[in-house]
Design a protein around this nucleic acid. Structure first.
Length: 288
DNA sequence: CCTAACTCCTGCATGC
DNA sequence: TGCATGCAGGAGTTAG
């Protein structure tokens, strides 16, 4: 599942392999991949043909290729999206949704997405304030690895919420880049239960949480991200190895590395939360 | 305005 | 063996 470390790994690969090159043509093999682009598949392809790729940028789980100072190709990988760079003559795998060829005749770029939650779209940059970001993601908060991230502002907004701390971590308008895996890992590191009410978090707990988020994201980035299966790989098709460092996610019943208690799995938001029953004490009044 | 449920989708694991 | 069910889940949309 691509979260910040995985998306950043992909962005770095695009920076290395496609920035500076010029798109020759675009094939949209599945219209759902560009469902959010009002121009539709044909308009999307036409808008990109002949355009040079200037920069590869990212905020949270979104990445984009800037075409100039006004327009970008925005991508979200969803659950299973991949951007793969390789020999343009290799066979098309069944889940390729869009293919980009380049004027230099070299390696092509393929957007592959088994579960089709990812998407691509042509977007304008939002005008004004600080760093220019694509207009459709102007409502997303800076991620904790950005210079624009404001820890004090995050703490203030977090404790003003009336919700559970994990739900808040997953809210991209509060802090971006954190998904189900790294939320569970950060909460374990910070020794906080996922249902702790945000308004009751003490300042020391909030700063512990933020430190844990930063720690787990940077450690995962160094490992090239987390790959459980073939669904997340970098632009060269290689897996990350942070799955070996996960402390709670997907480890129900296995002993906590701190205290030995078996890791528990709770249903949460129609998915799962993993935590240590000893290190992460359930609050008396849980907020789901 | 704020919060939370619902929805999209495919493939694999599981159970009868 | 084959079919039904559950599960993985990011984020826009809708409802309250």
């Amino acid at each position: 599942m691509p979260e910040l470390p995985e998306v950043e790994t992909v962005r770095a690969g695009l920076d290395r392999h496609v920035v500076g090159r010029t798109i020759a043509g675009v094939q949209v093999l599945h219209p759902r991949a560009v469902r959010r682009d009002p121009a539709g598949p044909a308009g999307f392809a036409a808008a990109l043909a002949g355009r040079p790729l200037k920069r590869a940028e990212r905020r949270g789980k979104y990445l984009w290729l800037a075409l100039d100072d006004d327009e970008a190709l925005l991508a979200h990988l969803g659950m299973s999206g991949q951007l793969l760079v390789g020999d343009p003559d290799r066979p098309l795998s069944p889940h390729v949704r869009a293919r980009f060829t380049f004027t230099d005749g070299g390696a092509d770029l393929r957007f592959t997405d088994q579960r089709t939650f990812g998407h691509l779209m042509m977007v304008p940059f939002a005008p004004g304030e600080g760093r220019a970001v694509p207009a459709p993601i102007a409502h997303i908060a800076p991620d904790p690895l950005e210079a624009a991230f404001d820890p004090a502002g995050f703490a203030a907004r977090l404790t003003r919420r009336r919700t559970g701390v994990k739900r808040a971590l997953l809210d991209q308008s509060l802090i971006s880049g954190v998904g189900n895996i790294y939320a569970d890992e950060a909460l374990w590191r910070a020794r906080l239960h996922w249902a702790r009410p945000t308004e009751a978090l003490r300042p020391a707990e909030v700063s512990r949480l933020l430190g844990a988020v930063l720690g787990v994201l940077t450690a995962a980035l160094r490992a090239g991200g987390t790959s459980f299966d073939a669904l997340y790989v970098n632009v060269n098709g290689e897996s990350g190895f942070f799955d070996r460092s996960l402390e709670v996610y997907g480890r129900a019943g296995e002993p906590c590395s701190r205290c030995g208690s078996p890791i528990r799995r709770d249903a949460f938001m129609n998915r799962s939360s993993y935590s240590c029953p000893h290190c992460q004490v359930r609050p008396r009044r849980p907020r789901l």
